[in-house]
């Protein structure tokens, strides 16, 4: 481990790659409404980027970028985004997750639908990335005391 971590080549490559990985992750997330991709895949890729960073730059460095607290908030808020979107459909008289009813663009419910699916995907993506990272932090180093078992994070089908 330490050998890899000290290698200047790897450190540099990682530093360069991580932003691209994240951009790609965002692309995958946003593509979820109309093509292969979506929140889960994108979230995993995004999380993998940060995990890669933490692997190479060390645990501490990684935690600075992604603290436990932030992690917790992200994982909660992701689901909250999902649920709020779903419930907002109820408010406008539709069924749960019936996006078309939300009167953002009254003329074109199909576009609204796609838009809101993206919102949901973003929510899922956020949760997945947060859970991925917390999994990594919890499982990898022995010094973390607080155990937070990752449970069922993805309920959507």
């Amino acid at each position: 481990m330490s050998g890899i971590q000290e290698s200047i080549v790897i450190r540099t490559v990682v530093r360069i790659m991580v932003p691209f990985i994240q951009i790609f992750a965002l692309y995958v997330i946003m593509h979820g409404a109309s093509g292969p991709g979506g929140g889960f895949q994108g979230g995993v890729i995004f999380g993998a980027g940060i995990i890669l960073y933490a692997m190479i730059y060390g645990h501490k460095e990684g935690k600075q970028r992604m603290s436990d607290k932030l992690n917790r908030i992200l994982s909660s808020s992701g689901v909250a985004i999902f649920a709020v979107t779903g419930i907002s459909c109820l408010v406008f008289g539709g069924m749960f997750l019936q996006y078309g009813v939300v009167p953002l663009l009254p003329d074109n419910p199909a576009v609204v639908s796609r838009l809101l699916i993206d919102v949901v995907e973003i929510g899922i993506g956020i949760t997945v990335l947060a859970v991925m990272i917390s999994l990594f932090f919890d499982v990898s180093p022995p010094e973390t005391d607080e155990e937070e078992l990752p449970a069922s994070e993805e309920a959507g089908q």
């Binding site: 889960f40 499982v139 078992l149 990752p150 449970a151 069922s152 993805e154």
Partner: peptide
């Protein structure tokens, strides 16, 4: 495919819990 995507997520979660 979509179903399996979900099942994979579940499998990953199970594996994560098992490893923990």
């Amino acid at each position: 495919h979509v179903l399996i995507l979900t099942a994979i997520v579940v499998a990953v979660s199970t594996t994560a819990v098992a490893l923990a």
